[in-house]
Design a protein around this nucleic acid. Structure first.
Lengths: 337, 337
DNA sequence: ATAGGTTGTCGAAGCGCTTCGACAGGGACT
DNA sequence: AGTCCCTGTCGAAGCGCTTCGACAACCTAT
C-alpha cells in the first residue's frame, strides 16, 4: 500500500505539500503540483480513508437509512437510494446503507462513531422515534418524508397534500361526483406514515370543497385483495365513477378487475394513479397519474445535505409540487342513464 | 466526543486495557471488565471508526455494488441489498452502497483506500470488466451472479441452468409439446448477463432432450410490448400451450392478455414464472413458479465473505438449487380438438 | 535600499485507536 | 524456598493523514 510519505519522497517534496496538492487548501506552484500529480499516478496512490477520517474528523460518508419493510412500493425506495448514491459520489461522498431495522440505535452508533458525516432518513413516520435523537445529536441530516414536527429539521418530499387535492380537482373537473381512493396497505396508516395521511387529507379537504363524495379504502395490493376491496366499494357506492390509486401494486389488479366487470376505462370509470411514471406508462392503458419524483427527491436530499456540510445550509422543508399528467385513463363522467 | 482515554481514566485503568475489554483479544479480570463497561455506559462512549480503521487496517465495512440499470426487476435487487445489510450487521459489518455506474473505478478506489474490507458485486456479466481488477487486487469478494470464468472467485447464485431445465421438465411432464419463453429485455442479453443466458441454456437443452419445441422471445415488459410479443408468438407457433416467463414485469400483462384472448389458464395454456414468491402469489391467479431466493443469496454472500475475512474461507461457487412450486397456472395440455 | 506583504514549502504535532513487548503478582510445581 | 508459567495490566510506538505555525524567497511600494 502506497502512502502519502512515499509519494512525497518520490516527488521530492514534503508530505504536507502532497496533502495540500490533494486538498487544494493552500496554493501550490504549478511545477510542484505537476510533479506530485505525476508521482501519484506512477505509484498508484490512494489516500487511506481511515487515516483521513481520523486526521480531519470527516469521513466523507453519508449514511442512508432505508426502510426494511416491504409493504411499500420498493422500486421507489430503490430509485431514491440510487439517486442518493449517484449524487453523493458527484460531491465526493460515499453512502453507507443502514436498514430501518436498527432504528434509533443506528443513529446513535453512526453519530457516535463518526462513521458518517451526515444522515438521510427515509420512510419517516409522523412521530418518528429517531427524530429526537437526530435533533440532539446535532448531526447534519435530511429526511425524505415529512414528520409532524419539522422544527430544526430539513425535509424533502413530494407535496402529498397538494397531490391529493390535485387528484380531487381533476376528477371534479371531469364531472365526477363519487370517487373512491384505493390507499396503501393498512399497516402504512397504522404506523402513521406521513405521505399516506397527507394524501388523504388533501383528497378529503378538496373533495369536500368541491362537493365530491369520497370513500377511502386501504388496500394491500395483489389481485385477490383488490377484488374484495373493489366489490365492497361498489357495494357501498354503486355510483362511483372515479378512482385514485395510491398503492402501486393495486394498479394492475384494479385495471384487470374493472375490465373483467365490463367497466370501461375511461368511458365508464376514470382512474388516476399516484405512482412513478414507469408504472403509469407500462400498465394495460396509459394512466393519468401524479408522478412520484423519486430521483429528484434523492438528489435534492443529498444536495441539501452537502450544503449543510459545507456550512451554507439551512433547515428547511422542501415540498416538490406535484404534476398531474393526463393520459388515457380519465375522462368526463358518463352521462346518467 | 468521548475517547478511549477518557473511558480509561474514568475507570482507573490504562487505555490499552479498555481496548482489550472492547476487542476481547486478551483476558481481562471480571472486576476490571465490569468497571470499564460501566464507564463506557456512563460516558456514552463509541469508538471512533476512523481511528479504529487506521490502527487496525480494518474498516469493518463491506462494499456492495448494485446495478444502476432499471431494466431488471428491481425488488429482487433491493431484497438482496437489504439481506446483505442485515446479515452484515449481524457480523459486525456496515455496508457501503456503490452504484454500478462507477464500474471498475469503484473497485480500484475502494480497494486502494481501505474504505472497505471486502466487496460484493451484483449483476455480474459473463465477461465482467470488474473481475480482472478484483482478482489482482486480492481483496476478499463475493459475486452474486456467475461469470464465465470463475477461477479464483467466490460466487453465489441461483442455479439458473437447472431452473430452466426444471421449467421444461414440468411442462413436458404435463404433456406440452410447444412452449414459449418470455425472456428478459433484449438489453439484458446484449450485455451477456449470466443468469439470463443460463436459464435459456437450461431450457433449450432440456427441451431438446425431452422433445419440446421451444421459442424464445426477449421482452421488455409492460402491457403494450407484451401484446406485440404474444401476438408474434401465436403467429409463429399457433400450437403453443406452455409459457415460461422470466421477466417479472411481463407477468401481469401476459395473464391479462391471455384472458382477454379467451385463452384460459391453466385449461388452455400453462404459465410458469421465474420470480419471487410474492409476485407469483399476488398475480391474478396463483402462479406455478420457480422462486428467486433473493434473501438467501444476500445472506449467503455475506456469510461467505465474513468467513473469508476471518481466514477460514474458500473460493467456491455456490449454486442454490431451484425449487418449483406448483400453483394454479399450470395443468395438463388440453386434449387436441 | 528597506519595510511590508505575498506565495510556496516544510516540520512537527496530533487525531483515537490497536498491539507489542514488558512485567508484576500469584499458583503450581519441584 | 525457589523456579517456572500463567494471568492481567501497562506504556509506548505507530497506523497515514491533516493542519498549524514558521519561514525563506520573492515582489511591490515607498
Amino acid at each position: 500500500m502506497v502512502t502519502l510519505a512515499e509519494v512525497a519522497q518520490h516527488a521530492g517534496v514534503s508530505a504536507s505539500t502532497v496533502s495540500y496538492v490533494l486538498s487544494g487548501k493552500r496554493s501550490i506552484s504549478a511545477g510542484t503540483r505537476q510533479r506530485v500529480e505525476r508521482s501519484i499516478q506512477e505509484l498508484g496512490y490512494h489516500p487511506n480513508a481511515g487515516a483521513r477520517a481520523l486526521a480531519s474528523s470527516r469521513s466523507n460518508i453519508i449514511a442512508l437509512m432505508v426502510p426494511l419493510r416491504t409493504d411499500m412500493y420498493v422500486p421507489v425506495m430503490m430509485e431514491i437510494a440510487i439517486a442518493v448514491a449517484t449524487t453523493a459520489r458527484i460531491h465526493g461522498y460515499d453512502v453507507l446503507l443502514l436498514t430501518g431495522e436498527e432504528g434509533p440505535d443506528a443513529v446513535r452508533r453512526v453519530t457516535g462513531s463518526g462513521l458518517a458525516d451526515a444522515m438521510i432518513l427515509m420512510d419517516v413516520e409522523l412521530d418518528d422515534e429517531r427524530l429526537p435523537l437526530l435533533r440532539q445529536s446535532g448531526q447534519p441530516s435530511v429526511l425524505i418524508g415529512l414528520p409532524a414536527d419539522t422544527a430544526g429539521l430539513t425535509c424533502v418530499d413530494l407535496d402529498f397534500t397538494a397531490t391529493g387535492a390535485l387528484c380531487a380537482e381533476h376528477l371534479a373537473l371531469l364531472g365526477h361526483r363519487d370517487i373512491a381512493v384505493i390507499g396503501e396497505a393498512p399497516a402504512v396508516y397504522e404506523r402513521h406514515t406521513g405521505f399516506a395521511e397527507r394524501t388523504l387529507d388533501g383528497l378529503r379537504n378538496r373533495s369536500r370543497e368541491l362537493g365530491l363524495r369520497m370513500l377511502h379504502r386501504p388496500c394491500e395490493g395483489g389481485y385477490d385483495v383488490m377484488a374484495v376491496t373493489l366489490a365492497r366499494i361498489f357495494d357501498e357506492r354503486p355510483g362511483t365513477t372515479g378512482f385514485v390509486v395510491q398503492n402501486e401494486s393495486a394498479v394492475a389488479p384494479l385495471l384487470a378487475l374493472l375490465r373483467q366487470q365490463g367497466r370501461a376505462v375511461p368511458e365508464d370509470v376514470s382512474v388516476i394513479a399516484i405512482c412513478p411514471d414507469q408504472v403509469a406508462t407500462q400498465a394495460s392503458l396509459r394512466l393519468t397519474s401524479v408522478a412520484i419524483p423519486a430521483q429528484e427527491m434523492g438528489r435534492r436530499a443529498v444536495e441539501h445535505l452537502v450544503a449543510k456540510l459545507d456550512g451554507h445550509g439551512t433547515d428547511e422543508v422542501v415540498l416538490l409540487a406535484p404534476e398531474l399528467t393526463v393520459r388515457a385513463s380519465t375522462g368526463p363522467v358518463p352521462s346518467a342513464g
